[in-house]
């Protein structure tokens, strides 16, 4: 029998991996992918709460979440391409100037 805890622990594992990716990696694209992992872990826990509380709020929230994360990726990658055109690198610790 699957319980809520199974899904919460899976969500926690994906969340931890995502946070580790954001903190550890230097490449911005990998950092954005780690953000997607974090989004997905949150979506899993929302859907699990929605199922086990027999409510529809979590499911609808997941749909909005997916929409917002698609918008975030579009803007993020557009900015990333612009930064790469100007600076010729994609490493987060070398992008430390405020004015291009």
């Amino acid at each position: 029998m699957l319980t809520l805890n199974h899904f919460l622990i899976l969500s926690l594992a994906l969340f931890s991996v995502g946070v580790a990716g954001v903190l550890i990696r230097r490449n911005i694209i990998i950092v954005l992918m780690s953000l997607e992992l974090i989004f997905n872990s949150v979506n899993i826990s929302l859907a699990a709460f929605s199922y086990y509380l027999q409510s529809l709020n979590g499911t609808v929230f997941v749909i909005f979440n997916i929409t917002v994360s698609a918008a975030e990726v579009a803007i993020g990658i557009a900015i990333l391409v612009l930064v790469y055109r100007q600076r010729r690198n994609v490493y987060v610790d070398e992008l430390n100037g405020m004015k291009g």
Partner: peptide, 9 residues
């Protein structure tokens, strides 16, 4: 899922 997430990062 977890193994491929670890591969991603």
């Amino acid at each position: 899922a977890v193994i491929s997430a670890i591969c991603v990062i």
